[in-house]
Every structure is written in C-alpha cells, then in structure tokens.
C-alpha cells in the first residue's frame, strides 16, 4: 500500500496550519479538510467558481490548484476576508439580495472584493465581466450585479467624503 502523501504548511485565514495530505488532493479539498468550509465544491473542473479563494492575494479557483502547490503560501477564504471593502460588499449583498441558496456566494463576494480593490468605479459591464467565471443558478445575476454596484457606490461616496477637505 503506497499512497503518496505530503506535508503541507500554509497560512489559512491568518492562521499557520500544517497538515499531512494525500498528494493527489486539490487545494479545495485540503482547505475544506482543514475547516475552511466556506469554499464550496461545485464542479472540480474550474468552471463554476464556487471554490474561489485568494492565493497570495490573487483570486484562484482552488480546484485548479494542487494542495502541494500551495505549500508555504497564504490562502484567504470568505471567512478570513475582513476589510472595509469586504464589509461593504457583504452589507450590499444582504441589502440587494445578492444570493439565494448561497452556494456561489463565497466566490462571488471574493471576486467582487478583488474587483473593487482594483477598480473603484466599475461599469455594469465591468461587474458582469468580473463575475463571468462564477456561475449562479438562482438569481439570474441581476441582484448580484446590483449588490456589487451598490457597494462600489458606497465606497466611492465614503472616499469622496474623506477627500472633500482637499477638494474644497
């Protein structure tokens, strides 16, 4: 009986973790086994985006990454995502009903945060493009797009308030 296994050390949601995992394991499988269950398994073929996490700050579909490849790196899931932008996006998803069953929500919110960190004033087309790798079967996307647009507006309004003394 020779099953390849590896030792994995990574930073997961701001905690250092070590694990002994099956060498065949995907990153999504490894982090879920480590308790990071908000990353969901929807297809394991990179199509649905439910398993989206941030790997060294970049959104990735964690079913397309071998667990072994994440050794020594930092993984943040929705549960570990905490910033002013993240909080604004979460509130907007609640206010605009940007989820129904919630299964795609972890991926959608992480992608939205990534978009708004890079780009404060996205158009509707920008938002639709940003979430194009994430499937939702419940909403028809409109409420998700509205939530992200709403978050962008709120963040811009806050930024404008902060900047206003310099403008006037």
């Amino acid at each position: 009986m020779s099953r390849p296994s590896i030792d994995l050390a990574l930073r997961l949601d701001h905690r250092d973790v070590v694990a002994h995992v099956d060498g065949r394991a995907l990153l999504i499988e490894a982090i879920r086994d480590l308790g990071a269950r908000s990353a969901r398994i929807g297809c394991l073929t990179g199509d649905c985006g439910a398993c989206t996490v941030l790997l060294d700050g970049q959104p990735v579909k964690s079913c397309l990454v071998l667990a072994a490849a994440a050794d020594g790196r930092e993984v943040v899931t929705l549960e570990g995502s905490a910033s002013a932008i993240a909080e604004t996006v979460r509130r907007a998803f609640i206010a605009k009903k940007g989820f129904q069953c919630g299964y795609c929500t972890s991926g959608m919110i992480l992608v939205a945060i990534d978009l708004l960190e890079a780009f404060a004033t996205p158009t509707e087309a920008d938002i639709r493009s940003a979430i194009s790798g994430n499937l939702c079967r419940c909403t028809g996307y409109d409420d998700i797009v509205s939530a992200i647009a709403d978050a962008a507006e709120q963040l811009s309004a806050k930024a404008a308030t902060r900047e206003s003394p310099e403008i006037f």
């Binding site: 908000s38 979460r90 609640i94 299964y103 929500t105 919110i109």
Partner: peptide, 8 residues
Amino acid sequence: FVLGHIDY
C-alpha cells in the same frame, strides 16, 4: 450567508 457560515 455572506460570512460563509452556512453549512450545506
């Protein structure tokens, strides 16, 4: 839901 705390 938005915190990822729903268990399926």
